[in-house]
Design a protein around this nucleic acid. Sequence first.
DNA 1: CGCCTACTTGACTTACTTCAAAAACAGTGG
DNA 2: CCACTGTTTTTGAAGTAAGTCAAGTAGGCG
Lengths: 245, 245
Amino acid sequence: MEKAYDVLIRNLCEHTALAEEDLAEIRALTFEQREFGPNEDFIRQGDEPEHSALVVSGMVARYHLLGSGQRQYLAFHLTGDLPDAQGLFIDQMDHGLSALGPATVAFIPHRELFRAFRRRPTFAHSVWRETLRDAAIFREAITNNSARPMRARMAHLFCELFYRARAAQLVRGNRCSMPISLAQLGETLGMAIATVNRTLAELRRSGAMDLREGELIVLKWRELQRLGDFSPVYLHQKRQSPPQV
Amino acid sequence: MEKAYDVLIRNLCEHTALAEEDLAEIRALTFEQREFGPNEDFIRQGDEPEHSALVVSGMVARYHLLGSGQRQYLAFHLTGDLPDAQGLFIDQMDHGLSALGPATVAFIPHRELFRAFRRRPTFAHSVWRETLRDAAIFREAITNNSARPMRARMAHLFCELFYRARAAQLVRGNRCSMPISLAQLGETLGMAIATVNRTLAELRRSGAMDLREGELIVLKWRELQRLGDFSPVYLHQKRQSPPQV
DNA sequence: CGCCTACTTGACTTACTTCAAAAACAGTGG
DNA sequence: CCACTGTTTTTGAAGTAAGTCAAGTAGGCG
């Protein structure tokens, strides 16, 4: 298993040039590592967080709980992501976080982070940038769930996740781990589970992709991208080589 | 007309305690002020911004343009907001900005902002915090447009806007300016214009609110809040007195 | 006054939801 | 190893909410 700080550094370097002093500061942080099982919560809506989470392995999700009891997934996070940097300046969490499949999460005390931010403004800016990228992903989700027809909506989600997984070096060949159920896909894309299944069947039939045994397999990247009206500019990756399938 | 920096300071103080030195730094920034007419763009998708915008008066919108030519509104901004602080660390805008009604916008050079951030980390953190609140608003929009039925969806939007307008001291009595057309509401909430009109009629009939001549009138706040399943925690306001209607 | 845009309303159509039941699969214990 | 239980996926049929289409009204402006 990779060190928590290596995972973080790799992710931040994807968009920001960090000096050796920044790296040293990051390595000096306390990473309290914990394992979680599928669908286990590790931050709840309403919590007052004093730690930030870092995904060391696996996949985690952010979600809202509505008055009706309904659940809405907001975003997914991969290795290297700081899924609740949002919580840094916020008194009370407005959303929860849970593991999708089995996941390893490291917790960093806010106090240490703030001290590191004061000492290394570039580090602060890189985390800030990370939260802005999150926001761009949220914006795209608004558009996706509000304006795109079902097939494009689902294709777009898989495009984004595959593209991000690739940037995080989690794609082997043409596949990456995707431990998500149809019900969860429905609660992500705002569609009924029956529709999820039929739409997924349609995407499979197109030959562009498959989703099997917790794995996403992309067979025709350009076709999937076309179906999903996907353009990766909003992900603001520095090195932008597209998947070559 | 209020000074641009006063508007900004008032907004930032809503959630962060700024020292006199921070205020001085803010007042020393260059604010290049410009007027815009209804539906006029001032930042376009694809632009590489070197200035940040500040809403000095009026209401502005952020939007995506889809491959199909369709438009999706993402968020609205009121006096005091920094609607594209997102652009600070980003090479290329993934969304555009336009005035809704007539609006005054001040532009601040990124270079000056970064210098101020280095000198006054608290100022940086207050702007960071501002971008995180934006992100929380995006998250709520995902949930709103994906999981809530039409009537609640629309009621929730008006709740949020009224609540924020009130915090920005833009509510007089029980009304605030809301220069938005039915078509734009449709492109915000992901519904057809006919549905927008019917849903709005339903809300009017409920007696909780009205939308007339570019003004939102809230007649029964608690009722509107109930209809919209609205809880303001995600707005992370420090002073949280609810509208007393 | 006439033109354009924004709003309103009605009738028709359809895409998606809901409901229901079967099939596949995973985990547990005999 | 295989029956037993619960969960997830798959498929079908029926109902409905919301979209589309179209026409009519009202309001703003030259």
